[in-house]
Nucleic acid binder design. Structure first.
Length: 303
RNA sequence: GGGCGGUUCGUAUAGCGGCAAUUACGUUUGGCUGUAAACCAAAUGCCCUCGGGCUUCAGAGGUUCGAGUCCUCUACCGCCCA
């Protein structure tokens, strides 16, 4: 049964969430056309130039003239972080609102979405590759006890076996010389309407398979090969995950074609599951099945 | 025909007589505040609310308070000698 959702009067921001392959991008364009909006992408891979087919980036044609923001903002050789994303997205949203249009935040990276909608306060400490390399040599236990000494407060809440988080936490204390500030959540100063596309797990699975088949036909393997030729290391490609990870492994002969396809498919379905662990517990989201339901909810909340 | 080695929880493996049984992979679920498509955790014989109960280590017997673990036979697989 549906939970009664809180009323959102006259929303100034529309957020569309859903798992990968659920059809967010297309719905966003349709809604942008209908309600005079512009799209702000919230996708941690589509920010990179050249990651097109593999990241499922919307094409010019599919945009149907609707402006899209936060796509192709940097080279994949550089690392883009949530923090950078957050300020860009906020700036884009402001510019859209300035023109009297409706910003529509759409994407499959929950971390990116919530960094914007929940106003996360993120410590002002840039990644320090040298320090990270040094810390990476330590075991998780060593990292954890180091953190306990330097920032006992953070040590209480952190995942004690997650090296990546531990290293980041240490990076922050070691740079600022003081404990991590308390977490703060702050919602945006205007009404936000959250829509989530609801599809069954088996449906998503089917869509993922179909979409992968299509992408292979469109030259996804070639895309990865080209990126490597342009100087992206295998290591970096593998770090980019999913399509880029498994195709890079295939091109290096670490996997057969069949293994690569099978692993990629499974990893994509797993990814969809993890996306949903964020969205499932967010009570603000109005779950919808299609464009019509989306329109009727938006209309019901407008003056 | 003779000699030896093997048969364990989806797969691959560990298991000096006290074991529901190791590890890896797989599978399922969950977490997440500057790498987030990354990274991490938990569960994984069956039943169960904690406690616990029930049935397991190719099959059948036996020894023992107690058997994947020792003994005998049977089946299947592998190597060696004929």
């Amino acid at each position: 049964m549906e939970n009664p959702k809180s009323e959102v009067r006259n929303p100034k921001l529309l957020v569309i969430v859903g798992s990968t392959a659920s059809g967010k991008s297309i719905l966003a364009v349709q809604l942008a056309k209908k309600f005079e909006g512009e799209v702000v992408s919230a996708d941690s891979r589509q920010v990179y130039k050249g990651l097109d087919i593999g990241s499922g980036k919307i094409t010019k044609k599919e945009m149907m003239g609707v402006p899209h923001h936060c796509l192709d903002v940097t080279s994949p050789k550089r690392k883009f972080t949530v923090s950078q994303y957050r300020s860009r997205a906020i700036a884009a949203m402001a510019a859209i609102a300035q023109q009297g249009k409706l910003p529509i935040l759409v994407g499959g990276s929950p971390f990116y979405i919530y960094s914007v909608t929940d106003g996360w306060t993120i410590p002002e400490v840039k990644p320090n590759p040298l320090l990270r390399r040094k810390l990476e040599r330590l075991s998780v236990d060593e990292l954890f006890s180091k953190l306990k000494k330097l920032d006992p407060q953070r040590a209480k809440s952190i995942e004690s076996k997650n090296p990546r988080r531990l290293i980041r936490a240490l990076e922050i204390v070691l740079t600022t010389k003081k404990p991590i500030p308390q977490l703060k959540k702050q919602s945006l100063p205007y009404p936000v309407l959250f829509l989530g596309i609801k599809k069954s797990k088996s449906k998503i699975q089917k869509l993922i398979v179909q979409r992968l088949t299509k992408r292979f036909k469109q030259g996804m393997i070639q895309e990865v090969a080209t990126l490597h030729k342009q100087g992206l290391s295998w290591k970096r490609l593998e770090e980019l995950g999913l399509e880029y990870r498994f195709i890079a492994q295939y091109l290096q002969r670490k996997l057969s074609l069949a293994e690569m396809k099978q692993k990629l498919q499974k990893a994509s379905v797993d990814f969809a599951r993890r996306q949903m662990t964020w969205f499932k517990k967010d009570k603000r989201i109005h779950w919808i099945k299609n464009y019509r339901e989306a329109v009727s909810i938006i209309n019901s909340q407008r003056p």
